[in-house]
Simulated assay, not measured.
Amino acid sequence: MSTAAIDVRGLRKSFKDVAVLGGVDLRVESGSVFALLGSNGAGKTTLVRILSTLLRADAGTATVAGRDVDRDASGVRAAISLTGQFAAVDGRLSGRENLVLIARLRHLRSPGAVADELLERFSLTEAGSRRADTYSGGMRRRLDIAMSLIGDPRVVFLDEPTTGLDPEARQEVWRAITRLAADGTTVLLTTQYLEEAEHLADRIAILHEGRILVEGTLADLRSLLPPAHTEYVVRQPSLEEVFLALTQKDTAS
């Protein structure tokens, strides 16, 4: 039986009279991608902040990488990395300089070699010498995730990593997350995008008003609804199809 990278039991958190988490239980297996799905205000970011030791729970227990988030916060911080909703990239530095800076702050040997390996791993080698403020949204996000991997954390928290990105940039980030999982990193991903959870996660939990409504694989969640049935409908052509048909016809003539 595999060991849980994250184990949460009865976690509660309120801000004054507002209950944000109302007794959350979840378990994330090592080396898996776990998606926490919920709308704004569901409590996703609060849960991540507690698990990453940035906030203390009012009640309940949580362990990350086998360490208690309250009693061994320093041990948890040594085993994790957190990427928030906005890229923590210094735009005045090049991509490589951002990576070297973090490697030096973590007191790693050969920070330049660490930076070069991550640039290659995230397909940023050609852009490595450019200032980060010239990067596209997807490139900045990939650089941000690369920075979070310096020091080989066992668990990575990605709090809504594709918020504000266009569809192409979102696909870039998805590929980066898929590579993380392939390398054995445990990923807890929060998102509002159903397609994102469906595409990336081994298991999915739906958090609503501070409580987990359901948790399981995609197949488990689909089984909660009646089986799909076939309907025949009249489909109108899309504007794109009209445009392509007309322009291709004009070109052919």
Rank of each mutant, 00 (worst) to 15 (best):
D70I: 12
D220G: 13
A182G: 11
R141V: 03
R56W: 09
E117F: 02
R106W: 05
G23H: 07
L21Q: 14
A219E: 14
G41T: 01
A205R: 04
R104V: 06
F243H: 03
R9Y: 06
A197H: 10
G60I: 06
T63D: 04
A252P: 02
E196F: 07
L194Q: 01
G210H: 01
I212E: 08
N40H: 05
G95Y: 01
M139R: 12
A169M: 04
Y193K: 08
K249V: 02
T217R: 13
R92M: 08
E160A: 12
L11M: 14
A5H: 10
A19S: 10
Y232S: 13
G43T: 08
E240W: 02
R154L: 01
H199G: 03
P237Y: 00
R131Y: 10
R49L: 15
D133K: 00
H229E: 01
R131E: 05
T186V: 10
V173F: 14
G31T: 13
A87Q: 09
A181G: 14
L165Y: 14
L105C: 12
L239H: 00
Q236D: 00
D25I: 05
Q85S: 09
F86M: 05
T163Q: 10
I145A: 14
A169D: 12
L55C: 09
E120K: 08
Y193T: 10
R131P: 11
L11P: 12
A103G: 09
V20W: 06
V155D: 04
F243Y: 13
D116M: 04
V233T: 02
A88L: 02
V173G: 13
K44S: 12
A4G: 06
L37Y: 10
V187P: 08
A169W: 04
R222P: 02
K249C: 02
I6M: 10
D250C: 02
T185V: 10
E168K: 12
L239K: 01
D25V: 04
I50R: 07
G23R: 01
D116H: 04
R27C: 15
E198Q: 14
R179L: 02
V155E: 02
R67S: 00
H229T: 00
D133C: 07
A73D: 10
Q85F: 09
T63K: 12
A79C: 11
D58S: 05
A59Y: 04
G164R: 06
G23D: 09
I6E: 13
E168R: 15
V234L: 13
S110Q: 14
E168N: 15
L225T: 01
V89L: 01
A169V: 03
V234I: 02
T45H: 11
L54S: 12
G75W: 02
G112E: 15
A205G: 13
T178H: 14
D220T: 14
A62K: 05
G151I: 12
L224Y: 02
G60W: 04
V18E: 01
Y193M: 12
D72W: 03
V187I: 11
L124A: 03
D17Q: 03
G38W: 09
F122P: 04
A252H: 06
R141N: 11
V76T: 04
